[in-house]
Amino acid sequence: MNLDLKNYTLFLADNALILGQRLGEWCGHGPVLEQDIALTNISLDHLGQSRMLLQYAAKQVGNGATEDSLAFFRNEGEFRNLLITELPNNDWAYTLAKHFLFDTFNFFQYEFLMNSKDETIQAIARKAIKEIAYHAQFSAEWIIRMGDGTEESHQRVQNAIDELWMYTGEMFVADSSSEAMTKAAVAPDYALLKEQWQEKVSQVLEIATLVKPEEGWMQKGGREGKHTEHMGYILAEMQHLPRTYPTAKW
């Protein structure tokens, strides 16, 4: 087993799984029916992507591992998702700001993965890129609407961007497994993605009449399994049923 490939596959899978799980909390609580359905669709897109990636990770883990055992029976320290994906949704502005910052990163990441040297990751990326491009467009449009909207929406989305900024740094700092995958041309060079991300984010924030935060101190740890205090709660909700009734069938 290639440990770095397994870790890297889990990084991709866990970002999609945790973000999708978190976004699903909006189901039934959206401000209007149409946006409730839109967010639920996006949540399911993420879960679909995470399933493909977890199936691939399960093959590498072996020993009877499945997509379900990886989703429901791993502990917090074994999840490799970025911290930004596990943060609470708070209000509409915060949720969309979180998705905008992540989706933009995810789009450039998957644009590279479409030509990854790993054939399975390449195939998954080619399938997922259409959804991911739509997500990036969807969240960017909402940032523009809110930033260039009312005084209240502008203030809320600006606050959200300011608060979330310190969670964007770890997107571009590879862990040792990602680094090995970059050398093998399986993964993008994350430091290089930063330029593309900065350019796109700056462009959208400017149209939205929002102020881009200064570079500053950045949180990190997700890629190595060190998570925020929010991660335990999200896993408890996601995992308690299969852990209580391991043989339960849907």
Partner: peptide, 20 residues
Amino acid sequence: SLHAPDADMAIKNARDVYTR
């Protein structure tokens, strides 16, 4: 029918509500 603040979002909402 559906709700939307403008035509652009009406198209997007229609995509999500009626073409899933």
